[in-house]
Design a protein around this nucleic acid. Structure first.
Lengths: 189, 189
DNA sequence: AACGCTTTTTGCCAAATGGCAACTGGCGGC
DNA sequence: GCCGCCAGTTGCCATTTGGCAAAAAGCGTT
């Protein structure tokens, strides 16, 4: 729990009373590898915060191929905040890549936080904006680079992730085939 | 000016007095094709809103090649909001791709808006988050697709842009070479 | 119309990547 | 220890894309 509060304090000044209130709203959840935290078509009903493990965001393209769009590891929010806010069905899956431990806020509790904590939405918007900026900053240079460079930079940007992710997911995230990625790895040794 | 106020009203409920106040802070600016609204290394001192024309966001990679990271067309904010907020130097260029007409708020005026209009930062965070989400939603599927698909989808996503942008910028944005894009175009007719 | 400048198109070949299928290796269940 | 399963690797060849340089097309100026 303290991990989440420390995370919030990066984005805001919250007093002890507020922190206690926030803590009182959280529950904990374990996910087995491959289990879904959220499935496409569902309306999200909770917000997760990853304490341990890796979750991936994926969807299916118009050819039916599964595409991994992103990874969420420790100390990141796992939910579709937009879909949650507007009560929309999500278009993506959130699936555990490894066994995971999460902190979870049910939608009702989350909204109570929004009503009770002054500036809660402001904090969330900041967090959202920062996460999106980081993702964008990592993803947008990737298109202009070849597969090897993309892989090497992934290793630099997410050093703690590479050895926990199946090759197929990583290849899909990098926009190359599994075979190509395997060959690239080989060449790098 | 009304265009900008209408834009704001999409994200918020502002009364007439607030709108008038906002309007009083804006000035207008014309940019010639190829002129810079912001250069890398500079600390941004203003926020632009594109009334007419196209601006691109670009930077130089470690090989010295110029990469176009995004386009900003009518009714979009043109600035580095993060750098502006924290007084940081921007790492990117904002360059006019065509002649442009902009609405401009100097940093000082922009901050006065933040202090005067209740919820101004909240509005800006919403706008930022939404823009980032849109960009991400368009960019992230691109890596998994071949160059032709990326080009076709660009045409669908930005129908009003394609004919106003030099081929080289577009190719760079799509992560392919100018020659390849030219060949792809040829094949599509 | 002729010129100079920039943008776009092409040709040629090399390199990177994809598609498919077979092979290998690790690991848990029996 | 053997088997089966899954993830990762490799071989083979087709396709895509890049790199480079030359040619063509567009455009404004004179």
């Amino acid at each position: 729990m303290d991990e989440f509060l420390a995370y919030l304090l990066q984005f805001s000044l919250l007093n002890q009373q507020q922190l206690d209130f926030i803590a009182s709203k959280a529950t904990s959840l374990s996910l087995r590898k491959d289990a879904y935290l959220l499935e496409a078509g569902q309306v999200p009903r909770q917000v997760g915060f990853v304490l341990e493990g890796v979750i991936r965001i994926c969807y299916y393209d118009n050819k039916g191929d599964e595409i991994t769009r992103n990874f969420i590891d420790e100390h990141r929010l796992a939910t579709d905040l937009r879909a949650l806010e507007y009560g929309l069905a999500s278009s993506e899956y959130l699936q555990a890549v490894t066994d995971c431990r999460l902190l979870v806020f049910a939608k009702r509790e989350w909204e109570e936080l929004a009503h009770t904590i002054v500036g809660w939405n402001d904090i969330m918007n900041r967090i959202t904006a920062q996460h999106l900026r980081e993702k964008l900053a990592r993803i947008s240079p990737m298109m202009a680079q070849d597969a090897t460079t993309r892989y090497v930079e992934f290793l630099e940007n997410y050093p703690r992730l590479a050895n926990r992710i199946p090759l197929s997911y990583l290849a899909s995230f990098l926009g190359i085939t599994q075979s190509s990625l395997s060959r690239i790895r080989k060449q790098l040794r």
